[in-house]
Design a protein around this nucleic acid. Structure first.
Ligand SMILES: [Mn+2]
Ligand SMILES: [Mn+2]
Ligand SMILES: [Mn+2]
Ligand SMILES: [Mn+2]
Lengths: 220, 220
DNA sequence: AAATAAATTTAGGCAAACCTAAAAAATTGT
DNA sequence: ACAATTTTTTAGGTTTGCCTAAATTTATTT
């Protein structure tokens, strides 16, 4: 598989996670920063290789084979992110671009040994689960703060938007994965939310709330 | 720079180290496992970019700019080799292929942090020196065993041939970098050499002797 | 149910990196 | 010196991944 094919497979995987429908050509083009006509070319090729199911004008979805390829690339991407943060002291907002390259290195032995070296991590620096070698992985039961009712309590386990600017914002406001939050109150007017943390109570905008995942520890 | 351009630059660098003449098209083709006509294409492109000096039919040599590019790729290659052996427990005969890929990852921060993580190593697992960031590096005064006179003594610091089969041979015969050897005797007939090691005296063929470097500690 | 708009595909091209076959230049042998 | 051989370059193609412009299909309005 070429680097480009791998990135397309990964893009299709991520887009199909959003809702469970087949993925539109334009959506892939936007994600991959190419033109729709280029996407059509590539989708045809992936279809020939049985990595995707494709019917003209009907959008595209990953085949089982394609899904396993996607998970293996995501596994590599996330393991490298752990390496960059844990071993090389990168901050979590700096790792994406480099991991985007490292995920394409071809060597099964490499990724197994890297996994061992890192102590078989279960999640990456952004709280996203790392698929196992055989392509299984547990989606945690996590919810966006914006989708949780008032008085919910839970551990912050992930981000929706992992852009450097958002991650830097979190650092500046002392919000980190692993912190326990309680939703105290939600403002009708603008959807902003008041949450209590170890270090006090803060108010976050709807935009922030819709980009932070909590793993809810039963509120009872 | 593309991956392919980088590999060409590296090949030209290595070939020009052998003797100090300009490098022949056919030699590059052999090294790169392509056809001479492809080499001509690429050399023209590198020449446009002022990375090599090239005149038709006259062979090619690296410009100063090209030399620095070569050294930066070699630096990355060798640092990754150290990482693979020291941190991921690869054996020294397994690392070349993966390092061949890793050397092309683009990120200055990555290579600086990797260097620090490894403790700023001076040589790679095959005893080859690691160029510094600014492209200087010390060629050690090392000589092939086949070129040294009888009774020379020194530390084994490098290999000429780093193919997996040769490295495996060394492991099997308990020859490792850092070992101290003394050349006891050389057979006129076949060039084979008798050397004393910590673990006793062994006889090595001319072919082996011409692939092992010693750093000679003055014999006086 | 048209008409309009949006999404998607097709057609035709381009650059990178390779190829084969043929031509040209350099080297070697006599 | 000049014929034969070797090396190198040129000419013309291929594949991959991208592009623009035009055609086609599907979706949305009116
Ligand atoms: Mn990628
Ligand atoms: Mn991540
Ligand atoms: Mn390489
Ligand atoms: Mn090496």
């Amino acid at each position: 598989m070429t680097l480009s094919e791998e990135d397309y497979i990964k893009a299709i995987y991520h887009l199909s996670q959003i809702d469970n429908k087949s993925v539109a050509t334009n959506a892939i083009a936007e994600q991959m920063k190419t033109k729709p006509s280029s996407v059509t070319d590539m989708v045809k090729k992936l279809s020939e290789k049985s990595l995707v199911n494709y019917k003209k004008y009907q959008g595209v979805s990953l085949s089982e084979k394609g899904r396993l390829v996607a998970l293996s690339i995501i596994r590599k991407h996330r393991l490298w992110e752990v390496f960059l943060v844990d071993k090389l002291n990168f901050s979590w907002d700096e790792v994406h671009e480099v991991a985007e390259q490292l995920e394409h290195i071809k060597s099964d032995a490499l990724i197994d040994k890297l996994d061992a070296h890192l102590g078989f991590p279960k999640v990456d620096p952004h709280g996203d689960p790392i698929p196992t070698k055989d392509g299984t992985f547990k989606k945690s039961i996590k919810k966006l703060i914006s989708e949780l009712p008032v008085l919910s309590e839970g551990v912050c386990v992930g981000v929706n938007d992992s852009s450097a600017s958002f991650l830097k914002f979190l650092d500046k406001n002392k919000i980190a994965l692993g912190d326990t939050f309680k939703i105290l109150d939600r403002e009708e007017f603008d959807g902003s939310v008041s949450i209590s943390t170890r270090s006090g109570t803060i108010r976050i905008s709807e935009q922030i709330a819709s980009n932070l995942y909590l793993e809810i520890s039963d509120t009872e």
